[in-house]
Amino acid sequence: MSVNVQIPAGYVPVYTRPRSLSEARFTYCPGCHHGIITRLVAEAIDELGIQERTVGVAPVGCAVFLYEFFRCDFAQAAHGRACAVATGIKRANPELIVFTYQGDGDLAAIGTAETVHAANRGENITVIFVNNQVYGMTGGEMAPTTLPGMRTVTTPEGRDVRATGYPLRMSEMLAQLDGPAYITRQAVFDVRHVQMAQKAIIKAFQNQLEGKGFSLVEIVAACPTNLHLPPAEANRWVVEQALKYFPLGDLKVRD
């Protein structure tokens, strides 16, 4: 923690900044759920004590700077290719704990094939899938998970499902496959859900440690900037709108 504050005697730490996070400031917008999720991944790495053997695969999108936020080795994947890059790393050195961290455009639009086939192979990797229903980094375009009627810069009149189709439920799709060991959909719009999401992310990494195969944690998240809502209201929007299309819960658990 770069803050050098004298902690008065008698106080013990309850929550401190995850060790596997670097000193770099997050580049996410104020209130962006990416920041919470990035922190949860770091907490899981700390919890399992795997920082020195973890390799992350960063996407192209709002989390493109992920490698700057962690004290782990990282690979920067081309847009959509993280699951293929992760496959290459894992196959080359199965001792490494490999995770990808991808947005909805990265994983469910351009990277659909790489995601589906990594899942179908039961690739022993951990995938963190941040579904905030928009392309944030590039200025708020429609994503495969954009809700019907939802305004984005490429659906100025609201998403017309007849022209662009329906929100894509990747977790349900992947849960049909035999390959994956764990597919779950979580959220981080309040503390209770943050705690549940943390448990799910730890489980997804634990599965990899135990060689159980492909684990994916989808997190229905908010992009306050492109929702044009203050962070607290964006969180409410997740509950009132997004969860209608993306129900939370485990979709596949293989023990």
């Binding site: 929550y15 900044r17 997050f26 996410y28 990416h34 922190r39 770091a42 962070p231």
Partner: peptide, 9 residues
């Protein structure tokens, strides 16, 4: 636990 910038201890 809620902070998106891991700014709080």
């Amino acid at each position: 636990q809620m902070c998106p910038d891991a700014a709080i201890e």
